[in-house]
Design a protein around this nucleic acid. Structure first.
Lengths: 351, 351
DNA sequence: ATCACACATGGGAGCGCTCCCACCCTACCC
DNA sequence: GGGTAGGGTGGGAGCGCTCCCATGTGTGAT
């Protein structure tokens, strides 16, 4: 009935068959032209393309998906309640990058949310039903079962920010280690000696790497690392405040702080202000992310920029390559790419 | 071959037919159970549900879409290069809201980009092919042809921020007029008298409404509106800077500025600083959006909060209702909803 | 001229589902 | 007891495409 209606009103959308009739060829031939197969003569191709243009033919995706067993779409899995993701600037930038990479293809982007338990379950179902050709995982925790599920289902997937040093999935990450080192080197270069750090949640691999970079920079400069200068935050502003308060209590003589995120730096800044420390005169402050907050903070915050949009783009490219790879899954995992993109220190007045 | 493989490895995903066989019923009955039809006996339903659970059956969307002529997905159209959208906090929040509303359904969210000319064309194709059941349009310009295309194709659509006073599409907007009035009333209440405003691009209806609210608030308080106190920005930081520079040149005696967005307020703040004006002592500043920038600015910026996530949620609800509405399109447009959500002034130190 | 082979092409089969019609069976009524 | 609803059910038809096999049709080698 529904389809009958559709056909009734003004002829509806043309089908492959109608294009074939119009071009005076068979269904198979039109299909070949549509899909860019080389096994079509130049002459026939032209005729078909003309018919397509005249009829304004657009392939029916559902039919194609059903027959070809692919969907021409990829999913981005959004860990909803983890506000780190919906916060500046991660989400927008990643999506922006993904969109850019997808613009050259006819793949569609499906946004799925893996927030609560219910969503996770329905997401698992969704993926099990192979409703997408590949998956982009963003901001995954070390103990998330989703990556394993994907591997088990043999669904191509790329993760942003690997979960550990030996990530089994393909991954794209920014160089957290080098970024942190650059930040601390910068502070050392400015003559700071008692450099504290506020870490993110250490079950996030990137946060751990930033801490590693902090340690490495100090060690390389011949300084020993005072554990009292390390406070653990949780990527939130409030966590930054708490950590900063701790640090001031433990080492009132500190003269610099490297925060694992701009948001935590913002929290730290407040506490420093309230404690009467001037930035950067008394205490230099460096953040991570180079978000809008950094630019608009007072004083503008020196921060480590991550190429987030580029990460999105790169992830997508890697995923598309994995999807196109027709080798059996067993061979594929040998060449899984682990890409690390460079970070960049953006110097502003806070240091 | 592809499907043959899929069946080969471990039995593949079960089909309706297999569930039917397992439950000892016909295909039609299983379909009825899956789709929640009431015309199934309690006993049969239980048997089918058991078979579904045992087999881990998940319906094949492509097949369903093909047979039923619907897709169970909606699109959000992202006007990519307009950075106003990808900027704080619009994009994330809208998407967040949409995701929330969609969580209770089995609808999927497809993100499409209408950036360049090429994307617009392929988007038009995509929509013409009825690859989604409905469309959410965000941040549309007055002269965008997309809404008309959608109307012509009779695809349910909801627009955020209507394009004009008589928007033919269903729309959800925040109360820009009242928000602006509240901001200006607040400034008047603080004794400010020379209140300037920096507008957004006036081809965006919301920006126009904010300006209208500014005018109305002054008029209602018995003040005449000095056109020299109105400068046009473009929603960018740089535009805010330029507009502020203009304003200071024209009316050096101004004692308050209402900016049509936080980002423009940030630009204005810089110029004010450089001109040696203290905020709020010399000049009070109010923004619009209540973004992260507002909270972290120095001093923290008074701003008009829009319920953006709620707008996303509401838009989705309206869209789902339109999709569910089976009346002919001619009857439908009579009841198109035009929803306006309240804004709220968030007072901080800048005013 | 004959065979072989490659390339171009047509169309059958089938993907997994929904829709709908026909059927059956069980009340219930006259 | 026969007739009549009507709910419950099975299964044919078909959605528009891809895949692949069978069938031309032309070229070069023998």
């Amino acid at each position: 009935m529904g389809s009958g209606q559709a056909r009734g009103r003004g002829g509806g959308r043309p089908t492959l068959e109608e294009v074939a009739a119009r071009a005076g060829v068979g269904r198979g031939t039109v299909s070949r032209v549509i899909n860019g197969s080389p096994r079509v003569s130049e002459h026939t191709r032209a005729a078909v393309e003309e018919a397509v243009a005249e009829l304004g033919y657009v392939p029916n995706t559902a039919a194609r998906a059903l027959a070809a067993n692919r969907t021409d779409s990829i999913a981005v899995v959004v860990p909803e309640p983890e506000s780190r993701f919906f916060a500046e600037p991660y989400f927008s930038d990643i999506i922006h990058g993904v969109g850019t990479a997808l613009a050259d293809t006819d793949m569609q982007l499906v946004l799925t949310f893996a927030g609560g338990d219910r969503e996770r379950r329905s997401l698992a179902q969704y993926l099990s039903a192979h409703r997408v050709d590949g998956v982009l995982l963003v901001s995954v925790h070390a103990d998330d079962p989703l990556p394993d599920l994907l591997q088990q289902l043999a669904i191509p997937a790329v993760i942003s920010g690997r979960r550990s040093a030996d990530e089994p999935l393909a991954s794209v990450d920014s160089d957290n280690f080098a970024g942190a080192r650059a930040a601390v080197d910068h502070l050392l270069g400015r003559g700071r000696r008692a450099i504290a750090t506020i870490t993110g949640r250490l079950d996030v691999y990137g946060a751990q790497r930033r801490l590693d970079g902090y340690r490495e920079a100090l060690a390389e400069a011949g300084h020993s690392v005072d554990e009292a200068l390390i406070a653990r935050g949780d990527f939130t502003e409030d966590g930054g405040r708490r950590a900063m308060t701790e640090l001031l209590a433990r080492r009132p003589d500190l003269d610099a702080v490297f925060a694992g995120s701009d948001v935590m730096a913002a929290g730290a800044r407040q506490v420093l202000r309230e404690a009467g420390r001037r930035i950067p005169a008394d205490v230099a402050l460096v953040g991570f992310d180079d978000s809008a907050i950094a630019r608009h903070m007072d004083p503008p915050l020196t921060s480590v920029r991550q190429p987030i949009a580029e990460m999105g783009r790169t992830m997508t490219d890697v995923l598309l390559a994995e999807i196109a790879d027709t080798r059996p899954a067993t061979a594929r995992h040998l060449t899984r790419q682990q890409i690390v993109l460079p970070t960049e220190l953006v110097c502003r007045e806070s240091s």
